[in-house]
Design a protein around this nucleic acid. Structure first.
Lengths: 242, 242
DNA sequence: GAGTGGTCTAGACCACCCC
DNA sequence: GGGTGGTCTAGACCACTCG
């Protein structure tokens, strides 16, 4: 009994066309789009309508406008990782920074039930599992495990772990044309297990902030599942409600 | 050396005028504003420009548009509390609901250093401190302490604790004309202390999700400081990143 | 100065709600 | 049917960037 929208405004249709075109990689990250007047002519609408469509993609951070220069396909640069995806802050309000990373383990295995569920995979799928330790200001703070579908990232398995960048989303985008557009996180408090204690240099059972994250691409398909366990004695997860 | 904006668009100026007018209570929560054409005429701008100004307040959830009916001052109803301010979800994706509440203690005291800091109070200010237990599906899940300035909420002190509603923001709005417009939260994992253990019916030292929240009014002045300690064995804090 | 995004207008028309 | 928000247009002009 779901309601069908009786009316789809023009700008909505156009924003969907633009989204689809972005998803196919027709324009690459960092590239400029044609000017608004050109795009408006191409789609046969006024500049105002075209702008409303672009507004939508800008709000979803798929495009970036720069006055006087043009409209560009958004990239996963440092700033975006920091503000959209990394919410852990130092308790002393110093300069924010992204963590550095050391890979602890990496293997390809049959997807577990949880991985199949969160990544939308079938029973025979294989995943690449990476376990890593992340440092802030030189101190180990995050013990993290993540999984991606091997089929979705062919060749990633053979990449030496030392060559994995700190921010994987840049790698997904640059090497595979996969753009992480949004993510949903579940937070809980858990007790440190033996593995956590060993690498984070803390005592067994100490409270950790556990973050489950499913990251999705432009078309809302799940791409990566990640569980981060964070030592919050000197850091906190910041969330602005507005 | 901060940059001065060289140019302030008309719609920005008007959205500021509208915001100021809302802050004074010129229109009350739930009330309709004049129609867009009337407001546009009043401010001497076109409907398009007036709409852009209103768009801004709608995005900040200060106003709500209802097609065919009008534009209304937003209210702190159930839905808004649930979606904007309450992020704790049951692990079994059932119907979401707001917690019920039992007040454990209530007192007025000199503001502590932390309270003065978070609420922007001076050394002699007094605060009302409330400690309460919040239940989801009948189970105690959140052990919460909150503080508000006595000066800001005169008379609240004398209200019988049994008459405090589950969602205080409705009370602030209805009885004092104070609208909570946004909040910022800091999350950490902590160990349950004796008081937590007693009321949440858990063991000492068990990991809890601690949420510090400063809630601010339309003019960005801090109104309430709150620390919630949550049992996350069967619940999680949900955050959508997009 | 040429080109881009950003603002603003006046007016027309559409979708929706309620009387 | 009358009023409200929502869409769309064509055109003008402004602010900004870069060569």
């Amino acid at each position: 009994m779901s309601e069908q929208p009786r009316f789809r405004p023009l700008y909505r249709q156009i924003s969907e066309l633009l989204t689809a075109r972005l998803a196919t990689g027709h324009w690459r990250p960092g590239e400029p789009l044609p000017s608004e007047t050109d795009l408006a002519r191409e789609y046969g609408v006024s500049q105002g309508t075209l702008r409303k469509a672009v507004d939508d993609l800008v709000a979803r951070r798929l495009l970036v406008r720069r006055q006087g220069r043009g409209t560009f396909v958004a990239r996963h640069d440092h700033q975006r990782s920091l503000f959209q995806f990394f919410h852990l802050h130092d308790d002393q309000q110093g300069e924010r920074q992204l963590p550095t990373t050391r890979v602890l383990a990496s293997q390809t295995v049959r997807a577990s039930a949880a991985e199949r569920h969160y990544l939308g995979l079938d029973a025979r799928s294989r995943v690449l599992r990476i376990r890593r330790l992340r440092y802030l200001a030189g101190e180990p703070v995050i013990h993290e495990s993540l999984s991606v579908s091997v089929a979705r990232f062919p060749g990633l398995v053979t990449l030496p772990t030392a060559q994995l960048p700190d921010t994987l989303y840049e790698l997904y985008e640059r090497s595979y044309g996969v753009t992480i557009a949004h993510a949903s996180e579940q937070l809980r408090a858990v007790a440190a297990d033996a593995a956590d204690a060993a690498v984070l240099n803390i005592t067994l059972g100490m409270p950790l902030l556990e973050i489950h994250r499913v990251a999705r691409d432009i078309e809302n398909q799940p791409v990566e599942w990640r569980v981060s366990r964070c030592d919050t004695r000197h850091h906190h997860y910041l969330n602005e409600l507005d």
